[in-house]
Computed example of a mutant assay.
Amino acid sequence: MKIAIFTDTYFPQVNGVAQTLKRLSNHLEKKQISYQVYSPENKSSTTYPNINQFPSLPFFVYPECRTVITNPRKIENNLKQFKPDLIHLATPYMMGLYGLFAAKKLNIPVVSSYHTNFDQYLKYYHASLLEPFLWKYLKWFHQSTERIFVPSNETQRKLESLDFRELKVWGRGIDSKLFTPNIDAKEQIRRKYHIRENHILLYVGRLAPEKDLATLNDIVDKLPSNIKESVHWLIVGDGPNKEAWREKEKSQQNITLTGYIKGDDLARIYAGADLFVFPSYTETFGNVVLEAMACGTPAIVANEGGVKDFVIDHINGRICKKQNAESFLQAISELLFDEKMRGSMGREARIYALTQSWDTIFDGLLCEYCEVLQTRQGLNKKYA
């Protein structure tokens, strides 16, 4: 089996789609499955085997996705040489369009995946009027493919309500050896970031409006004084709202912005935090939430989005009303004052994470690829 992957974002970019696709390509290598990735070129691009990069510009809604400008014939010629059995369109924008048109022209089976709720992003970028046109486009794009992979049951239900067909859940896994509990982590990060407060509250993610940072800001500001004095916030990430949070960091002693962090350093921060606070309700999955859980840190999340697939309220975390700071404040207060409950939720979170291996997730995707190919072969024989 040969697989061609078309995506508007790829490693080393730091977002869920890019990281997942890099893991997928690693898995294909491990399984000795030939693949080629077609992606935009940008200032952080690195040369990798099997990666075909094209000149690009940042996409206005989500700069980490790039708009590729190239000659379609160049892509077609490359595909003719590679001769893929199947094309996977990981994103629905320019790179995805190039892949779709090439697949149709060359009669190659094609599947797609839905990763991001861009419809919910539009209001944060004052572009809500575009939503009907966006859905019309997304439906045309995805229904032009033979299978649509979604990261969670919640996302599947959403798209089914909009009459999308041929949906299959392709979940996300976790490296539970990297992201693991660490009893020394709290003291290590306290020393590194000069933290004196008793408790550490953590946010990891893009510093952008669509992550509902407005609610996070309210949570930080409205913590009761007896709690505020005993907690320190670690804000991990980067994005367009970084400067606003830098100003907040300057005005409040109990906030530290770290910028982007990855690998062992990130795992140590997860493991050293008392609670992971993540108010975003636009997630189709929520990779960072599963990472925190794998480190034994209970997550407090919103009651909308893909995180509901694996955060079980009062068992391995807390689910709060979206855009409701008071709901989050109550959950934070309860868990900080109840160490026994916090420990129990952390253990349950870790137990769940251990069941979500990347190998199992990707092997399931490969089985889906095979089913698509078998169905296409069956149709070809039927109409031969």
Rank of each mutant, 00 (worst) to 15 (best):
V37A: 00
Y38C: 04
S39G: 09
P40Q: 04
E41G: 05
N42P: 04
S44D: 09
S45Q: 05
S45F: 04
Y48T: 05
Y48I: 04
P49Q: 12
N52W: 00
N52K: 11
Q53G: 03
F54T: 00
S56Q: 03
S56R: 01
L57Q: 11
L57M: 12
L57P: 06
L57D: 08
L57K: 11
L57F: 13
F60M: 13
F60W: 14
P63T: 05
C65I: 07
C65M: 08
T67L: 15
I69S: 12
N71S: 09
P72H: 03
R73L: 14
R73Y: 10
K74G: 06
K74A: 13
E76N: 10
E76D: 13
E76K: 12
N77E: 15
N77R: 14
N78M: 08
L79I: 05
Q81E: 08
Q81G: 09
Q81K: 09
F82K: 08
P84H: 04
D85S: 15
L86F: 03
L86S: 06
I87Y: 00
I87T: 02
T91Y: 01
P92N: 07
P92D: 10
Y93K: 07
Y93S: 10
M95V: 00
G96D: 00
F101L: 11
A102V: 01
A102P: 02
A103K: 04
A103R: 02
K105E: 12
L106P: 07
N107G: 10
N107Q: 15
I108A: 09
P109N: 07
V110W: 00
S113E: 08
S113T: 10
S113N: 06
Y114R: 02
T116G: 06
N117C: 11
N117M: 14
F118E: 05
F118S: 03
Y121R: 07
L122F: 12
K123N: 14
H126W: 11
H126C: 13
A127L: 15
A127C: 13
S128K: 12
L129W: 15
L129K: 14
L129M: 14
L129Y: 15
E131M: 08
P132F: 03
F133S: 12
L134V: 05
L134Y: 07
L134S: 01
W135T: 03
W135A: 05
Y137Q: 06
L138I: 06
L138F: 11
H142R: 02
H142L: 01
H142E: 02
Q143N: 09
S144C: 07
E146C: 05
R147V: 06
I148D: 06
F149R: 01
F149C: 03
P151M: 05
S152T: 08
S152P: 08
S152E: 07
E154G: 11
